Deep mutational scan, measured.
Amino acid sequence: MSRVPSPPPPAEMSSGPVAESWCYTQIKVVKFSYMWTINNFSFCREEMGEVIKSSTFSSGANDKLKWCLRVNPKGLDEESKDYLSLYLLLVSCPKSEVRAKFKFSILNAKGEETKAMESQRAYRFVQGKDWGFKKFIRRDFLLDEANGLLPDDKLTLFCEVSVVQDSVNISGQNTMNMVKVPECRLADELGGLWENSRFTDCCLCVAGQEFQAHKAILAARSPVFSAMFEHEMEESKKNRVEINDVEPEVFKEMMCFIYTGKAPNLDKMADDLLAAADKYALERLKVMCEDALCSNLSVENAAEILILADLHSADQLKTQAVDFINYHASDVLETSGWKSMVVSHPHLVAEAYRSLASAQCPFLGPPRKRLKQS
């Protein structure tokens, strides 16, 4: 649940008159999402009104509101027999009622949201009550392989729920002597030191190019640089560091992050930047690179990204790559990247197969709970 924001200063709310007192009302909304995959969808019983329910879910471990999704594969009634019906059901509720908006969509073979439908307002739910769409999607369109909505005969539904909580009022009075504290510009100011090479005390040599930097900042941000300058190493004695395995453009992006906490060109060089972040123990930059690479996972590059993640101990990226390969196994196994990995990294192939087997055979063990970014 997000923290209630402070109200904007009255002088910034309007260029008009300023009242002596004010009130700011925040209506709290808890948002969460749920993904439900139905394997072997074409084998569902086709009687009209037949119901399939998901397991229950909530916004978190401490949330007492429990929900589930309900599907009628062949419609709810005679009117909707040519459609799939989809509903959000409130299973248990400690209150007399709650209000919530919802959005349903289908994830296609690429994991993209399609055929989205959402409620136009927050509906009133009581325990045992459901709301949804009797005519969510035509069955003939859903079952047509050309539309790519049932890869490997799996129907994957994605649901986003927004639950309306209580409202909170914050009130106060205006004073004539309003003090406005300026925003912190530390990142910009440190970035200026790097860009202008002011007050530098060490030189970093990268592929024949020299960059002036500040030992204190490098040591504070990177345990690797800290070790170089702290001990009686040649880098500490000469205040000069030779860097041979990072390209200059990648190095500059890494230094921008060290000084400012930002990497504006990360998406263009996420793979190389991940390697640099791993070498210099820049954990936050490493996770930022993992996130960017996750966003660009595809059938063509899944094997290469899995190898990269394994090489640099990028655990979150590795998990996402394995899950992606499992979901698109029939396509990924035909790529040149996968065939190369079979020869060069057989242990990763074995890991992917083990994960695929456990996903398809849940009876082999208890269900695993899916539970950071600093």
Score class of each variant (00 low, 15 high):
Met1Pro: 00
Ser2Tyr: 07
Pro7Phe: 02
Ala11Gly: 09
Ala11Cys: 06
Glu12Ile: 09
Glu12His: 08
Gly16Glu: 11
Val18Arg: 07
Ala19Ile: 04
Trp22Met: 09
Trp22Cys: 01
Thr25Gln: 05
Gln26Trp: 06
Val30Asp: 13
Val30Cys: 10
Lys31Asn: 07
Ser33Leu: 09
Tyr34Gly: 04
Ser42Val: 01
Glu47Phe: 05
Gly49Asp: 02
Val51Ile: 02
Ile52Glu: 05
Ser58Val: 06
Ser59Leu: 07
Asn62Gly: 10
Asp63Pro: 15
Lys64His: 08
Leu65His: 05
Cys68His: 07
Arg70Thr: 13
Pro73Phe: 09
Pro73Thr: 05
Lys81Thr: 12
Tyr83Lys: 02
Leu84Asn: 09
Ser85Lys: 11
Leu86Lys: 01
Tyr87Asn: 00
Leu89Glu: 02
Leu89His: 11
Val91His: 07
Pro94Gly: 10
Lys95Ala: 11
Lys95Glu: 08
Arg99Gly: 06
Lys101Arg: 12
Phe102Ala: 01
Lys103Gln: 15
Ser105Trp: 10
Leu107Thr: 14
Asn108Met: 14
Lys110Cys: 10
Glu112Phe: 03
Lys115Asn: 03
Arg121His: 15
Arg121Leu: 11
Arg124Trp: 13
Arg124Met: 03
Val126Thr: 12
Gln127Glu: 08
Gly128Phe: 14
Asp130Lys: 00
Asp130Thr: 15
Trp131Pro: 00
Phe133Ala: 11
Phe133Gly: 13
Phe133Asn: 12
Phe133Val: 05
Ile137Lys: 03
Ile137Ala: 14
Arg138Tyr: 01
Arg138Phe: 12
Asp140Met: 01
Asp140Trp: 06
Phe141Lys: 04
Phe141Ser: 09
Phe141Asn: 02
Leu143Cys: 02
Glu145Arg: 09
Asn147Arg: 09
Leu150Glu: 08
Leu150Arg: 08
Asp153Trp: 08
Leu155Lys: 01
Val161Thr: 11
Val163Ala: 02
Asp166Arg: 07
Ser167Glu: 08
Ser167Lys: 10
Asn169Pro: 02
Ile170Met: 03
Asn174Val: 03
Val179Gln: 11
Lys180Glu: 08
Val181Pro: 06
Glu189Ala: 01
Gly192His: 04
Gly192Glu: 13
Leu193Asn: 00
Leu193Val: 02
Leu193Ser: 05
Trp194Tyr: 07
Arg198His: 15
Asp201Trp: 00
Cys202Glu: 13
Cys205Phe: 12
Val206Trp: 08
Ala207Ile: 10
Ala207Glu: 11
Gln209His: 07
Phe211Met: 11
Gln212Trp: 13
Ala213Gln: 15
Ala213His: 15
His214Ile: 14
Ala220Phe: 15
Arg221Tyr: 15
Val224Phe: 13
Phe225Gly: 00
Met228Thr: 11
Glu230Ala: 14
Glu234Gln: 11
Glu234Pro: 15
Glu235Ser: 01
Val241Ala: 01
Asn244Trp: 11
Asp245Pro: 06
Glu249Lys: 04
Phe251Pro: 00
Lys252Val: 06
Phe257Asn: 13
Ile258Lys: 00
Ile258Phe: 11
Lys262Glu: 07
Ala263Gln: 03
Ala263Pro: 01
Asp267Val: 03
Asp272Ala: 01
Leu274Gln: 01
Ala275Trp: 04
Ala275Cys: 06
Ala277Glu: 01
Lys286Arg: 03
Cys289Tyr: 01
Leu293Gln: 08
Ser298Ile: 04
Val299Pro: 08
Asn301Ile: 06
Asn301Thr: 14
Leu306Gly: 00
Ala309Lys: 00
Ser313Ala: 08
Asp315Lys: 06
Gln316Arg: 06
Gln316Phe: 01
Leu317Pro: 00
Lys318Leu: 06
Thr319Met: 13
Thr319Ser: 09
Ala321Ile: 09
Asp323His: 05
Phe324Gln: 01
Phe324Ser: 01
Ala329Ile: 02
Ser330Met: 12
Ser330His: 08
Asp331Lys: 11
Val332Gly: 00
Leu333His: 14
Glu334Lys: 08
Thr335Asn: 04
Ser336Val: 12
Met341His: 01
Ser344Ala: 13
Pro346Asp: 01
Leu348Lys: 00
Leu348Cys: 06
Ala350Met: 09
Tyr353Thr: 00
Tyr353Glu: 00
Ser355Phe: 03
Leu356Val: 04
Ala357Arg: 10
Ser358Cys: 06
Pro362Trp: 13
Leu364Met: 12
Leu364Gln: 14
Gly365His: 13
Gly365Arg: 10
Pro366Trp: 12
Lys369Asp: 06
Arg370Cys: 09
Arg370Leu: 11
Lys372Thr: 04
